[in-house]
Design a protein around this nucleic acid. Structure first.
Length: 332
DNA sequence: TAACTAACCTGGGGGC
DNA sequence: TGCCCCCAGGTTAGTT
């Protein structure tokens, strides 16, 4: 299940390969993988063919590739990709091998690396590709994370400032910045969290509050911060919020360093290799095993049509808020 | 307006 | 061996 670290691994793998390359042809094998593409923008393949890819950006779990040339009256555009639960973006040598469940193929011509394919493979079709217009960001900061290469101005596509400009695809604009984004505003996040009258895990999964966190890393961060998933977000003190955010960053950063989490073939990098973070999980999928901290068997509980993994001793269920005393009855 | 729920989707695994 | 059912979960439209 691709979350922020997995998507970032894909972005980092794609960026040097596609930046400065031209899309020469597009093949769509399953129209359902275009569910986020609006026909009002134009035909998906026609919008892409002949366009140059300027770079590879990411906000949370959304990836996008700003496009150069012939933007037309609609202004700057980008190819937006979301991996959903089972999406993969694979770099392939033409004709060498076929990927099962292939939904979309981009034929790419790079001035240095020559011709190759970008295959979008998706088993459950929760993922998608779309061409979307770029709109200005609300805070005037770059739309997302474009990596160290482009940020330092050394990318092959860095001549075109459209790649890293303060623009974001319109369908990504409502998504909050992720905690690894240099422009992530901690004060804004803490204030928004303090207004949420809901459980802390539901808040962490709310991509309009903080993006990039899914079920796996929410469970891991809550275990690390010793917080029960139902702990009311608005009852967290600032120090506890800071502690939780630090654990979120630690978990995401560690997973990123290990190439992401893979349980099966559902998540792979652009070369088809799996990540190693599943060996480092403390809570997610560890039900029945002893808590690495206190030895109490970890449990799995139903939560939001999915599951939550926690230590029943380290992560105590919050007590119900004390009832407000009823006003005294008027004296008679 | 905020919080919450259900639907989308399909390969794999378990039970019979 | 084959069939059926359940499970996984990110996003979003619809409901409360």
């Amino acid at each position: 299940m691709p979350e922020l670290p997995e998507v970032e691994v894909v972005r980092a793998g794609l960026s040097p390969a596609v930046s400065g390359a031209v899309i020469t042809a597009v093949e769509v094998f399953d129209e359902r993988s275009l569910k986020r593409h609006s026909p009002l923008e134009g035909a998906f393949d026609a919008l892409l063919e002949g366009r140059t890819i300027l770079g590879a950006g990411r906000r949370g779990k959304f990836l996008w590739f700003p496009l150069g040339d012939s933007a037309g009256p609609a202004g700057a555009q980008a190819l937006v990709t979301h991996l959903g639960m089972s999406g993969q973006v694979l770099l392939r040598t033409p004709g060498v091998e076929e990927d099962g469940l292939l939904r979309i193929r981009l034929h790419i011509e790079h001035p240095v690396q020559g011709e190759f394919w970008v295959n979008f493979v998706d088993q459950r079709i929760f993922g998608s590709m779309a061409v979307d217009r770029l709109v200005p960001t609300a805070d005037g900061q770059p739309g997302g994370y474009f990596g160290e290469v482009l940020a330092s101005g050394a990318s092959a596509a860095s001549d075109d400032s459209a790649a890293s400009a303060a623009l974001v695809p319109s369908q990504v604009a409502h998504i909050a910045r992720d905690p690894l984004d240099p422009a992530f505003d901690e004060a804004l996040f803490f204030a928004a969290l303090g207004r949420k009258r809901t459980g802390i895990k539901r808040a962490l999964l709310d991509q309009t509050l903080i993006s990039g966190i899914g079920n796996i890393y929410a469970d891991e961060a809550l275990w690390a911060a010793r917080l029960h998933y139902e702990h009311p977000a608005d009852r967290l003190t600032r120090p506890r919020m800071r502690e939780l955010l630090a654990e979120v960053r630690l978990v995401l950063g560690k997973a990123l360093a290990e190439g992401g989490t893979s349980f099966d073939a559902q998540y792979v990098n652009v070369n088809g290799a799996s990540g190693c973070f599943s060996h480092s999980l403390n809570a997610y999928g560890q039900q029945g095993k002893p808590c690495p901290r206190c030895g109490t068997p970890l449990v799995r509980e139903a939560f939001m049509n999915r599951s939550s993994h926690l230590c029943p001793r380290c992560q105590r269920r919050p007590r119900a808020p004390r009832a407000t005393p009823a006003p005294a009855p008027p004296a008679t």
